[in-house]
Simulated scan of single mutants.
Amino acid sequence: MNDIKAWIFDLDGTLTLAQHDFPAIRRELGIPAQDDILTYLKGLPEAQAQVLNKQLDAIELRLARDVAPAPGAASLIRHLRSSGKHVGILTRNLHAVAVSSLEVLGIADCFTPQSILGRDEASPKPDPAGIHHLLDLWSVSPDHAIMVGDFRFDLEAGRAAGCRTCLLHADNSWPDLADWHFDNCENLLGRLQDSSRSN
């Protein structure tokens, strides 16, 4: 893992504690329980989609005020930056929500504005376009990159981009999609530090 040059992170549930109650958001927006929110909105007539997207933006901005860091998140990002690694964010949230969350976590200074991609800057995961965009920005090949997240969309995007994948979640529900699995950022950081000491 220490040979990986580019680290791309999901945000909610990965660097922050999961706070999105997706069933509640679907109910508030009138979206069927089984549908992915962004995919559903994309399929609506433009006028209707605009109204619901504004509602979704307002919900996310409201949630951003109460964001809390995941265990070890800030230490992990600072460790990677001090080791000379590229770090980026690829989230299905708004760019403004991502920036606000990183400020609350105290690590906004670790990311350039261009390395934070929200749903308006790149097609939402599992589309790998955002990963390709960041790797092009950094001139890093996919085999030297990793996508880190807490859901299958993160892992599917990483797989589709040709890079490594790491699941941060208590349960490894997608073992065929994850190259590595840790409970949280703290455990991932511990693995990296152990590897550094043994080299």
Rank of each mutant, 00 (worst) to 15 (best):
V140E: 09
G13D: 08
G158N: 05
G130T: 02
L29N: 06
D35Y: 04
A47K: 10
P142W: 05
A58D: 15
T112W: 01
I107H: 03
K5T: 12
I31C: 05
N93A: 06
A98F: 02
L188T: 05
D136I: 03
D176Y: 02
L61R: 10
I25A: 11
D109S: 08
C110T: 00
L155K: 00
L192P: 11
Q34W: 00
A96C: 12
W174K: 01
S123Y: 01
T112D: 12
G43H: 03
Q34R: 00
D127F: 04
D120C: 06
G149W: 04
N93S: 10
Q19H: 13
G88I: 07
I59K: 06
G88V: 02
D171M: 09
Q55N: 09
T165A: 14
F111H: 07
H181G: 08
D183A: 14
D109Y: 01
H132D: 11
L44A: 06
R81C: 11
D150R: 03
L137G: 15
D143H: 04
D150K: 00
A6F: 04
P113D: 13
V97D: 13
I59Y: 05
G30R: 04
D194N: 13
P23D: 07
Q50F: 08
L17R: 09
T16I: 03
A178S: 09
F182M: 07
I31G: 02
Y40W: 10
P69W: 01
D12E: 15
A178P: 00
A6N: 12
N187H: 14
G43D: 06
K85F: 04
L76S: 08
S173K: 08
G88D: 13
A98I: 00
D21Y: 01
A70F: 01
I107G: 10
D36G: 06
P23M: 07
L41S: 03
V140K: 00
I25D: 12
I37D: 06
F111C: 10
L90H: 09
L38H: 05
A145Y: 02
D143T: 00
L41C: 07
A68D: 11
D154Y: 03
R119D: 05
H95D: 15
K5M: 12
Q114I: 07
E121D: 15
A74R: 01
F182P: 12
S83V: 04
P23L: 06
I8K: 06
T14K: 00
Q193L: 10
P126T: 11
D57C: 10
I77C: 06
T112P: 14
Q50D: 12
H79R: 04
R159W: 11
C110A: 05
G118K: 03
A24Y: 04
A64K: 07
D143Y: 00
L29D: 08
V51P: 11
I4G: 05
D171V: 02
A58V: 06
G72T: 01
D12P: 13
S198T: 14
S75Y: 02
V51I: 12
R119A: 03
A96P: 08
M147F: 09
S82W: 04
H20V: 15
L188A: 09
I25G: 07
A161N: 14
P69Q: 07
L117I: 07
D176V: 01
H95T: 12
L102N: 13
L11F: 03
L102E: 14
L192G: 09
W138P: 09
